[in-house]
Amino acid sequence: MKRATLSNHLNLDEKQMKKLHGQLNDILSDYHVFYQNVRGFHWNVKGNDFFVLHEKFEELYTRLYQNIDELAERIVTIGYQPLHSYSDYLSHTIHKEVTDVSSEEETVDQVINGLGMLISSQRKAAELAGEAGDISTEDMLTTFVADLEKRMWMFTMYKK
Results as ranks from 00 to 15, higher is better:
residue 93 T to Y: 06
residue 122 Q to G: 02
residue 106 E to R: 15
residue 94 I to E: 14
residue 127 E to Y: 10
residue 110 Q to D: 06
residue 102 S to Y: 12
residue 110 Q to V: 01
residue 100 D to I: 05
residue 124 K to A: 15
residue 97 E to G: 12
residue 109 D to E: 13
residue 127 E to V: 13
residue 94 I to M: 13
residue 127 E to G: 12
residue 117 M to C: 10
residue 130 G to T: 04
residue 116 G to A: 04
residue 99 T to M: 08
residue 128 L to T: 15
residue 97 E to K: 14
residue 124 K to H: 12
residue 114 G to T: 03
residue 102 S to F: 14
residue 109 D to F: 11
residue 102 S to E: 12
residue 125 A to K: 04
residue 95 H to P: 00
residue 107 T to P: 06
residue 124 K to C: 07
residue 129 A to K: 09
residue 125 A to W: 02
residue 111 V to Q: 09
residue 104 E to V: 07
residue 98 V to A: 11
residue 112 I to T: 06
residue 126 A to F: 00
residue 117 M to D: 09
residue 96 K to I: 08
residue 118 L to A: 00
residue 113 N to M: 09
residue 114 G to D: 03
residue 103 S to H: 05
residue 98 V to C: 10
residue 107 T to M: 11
residue 98 V to T: 13
residue 102 S to G: 01
residue 128 L to I: 05
residue 119 I to R: 08
residue 108 V to K: 04
residue 111 V to Y: 05
residue 115 L to R: 00
residue 117 M to V: 14
residue 106 E to Q: 14
residue 125 A to M: 02
residue 100 D to P: 01
residue 123 R to L: 15
residue 108 V to G: 07
residue 115 L to G: 02
residue 107 T to Y: 01
residue 93 T to V: 06
residue 114 G to P: 02
residue 112 I to R: 09
residue 102 S to I: 02
residue 118 L to P: 02
residue 104 E to N: 09
residue 118 L to H: 03
residue 122 Q to T: 09
residue 104 E to Y: 01
residue 103 S to A: 14
residue 95 H to Y: 03
residue 93 T to D: 03
residue 119 I to M: 08
residue 99 T to W: 06
residue 114 G to Q: 00
residue 108 V to W: 04
residue 126 A to W: 03
residue 116 G to K: 03
residue 129 A to V: 05
residue 123 R to M: 15
residue 115 L to H: 03
residue 122 Q to V: 05
residue 121 S to W: 01
residue 130 G to M: 07
residue 114 G to M: 01
residue 122 Q to S: 14
residue 98 V to K: 14
residue 103 S to L: 07
residue 128 L to D: 13
residue 127 E to H: 04
residue 119 I to D: 04
residue 107 T to E: 00
residue 111 V to I: 11
residue 106 E to I: 10
residue 112 I to A: 00
residue 106 E to S: 13
residue 106 E to N: 12
residue 128 L to K: 14
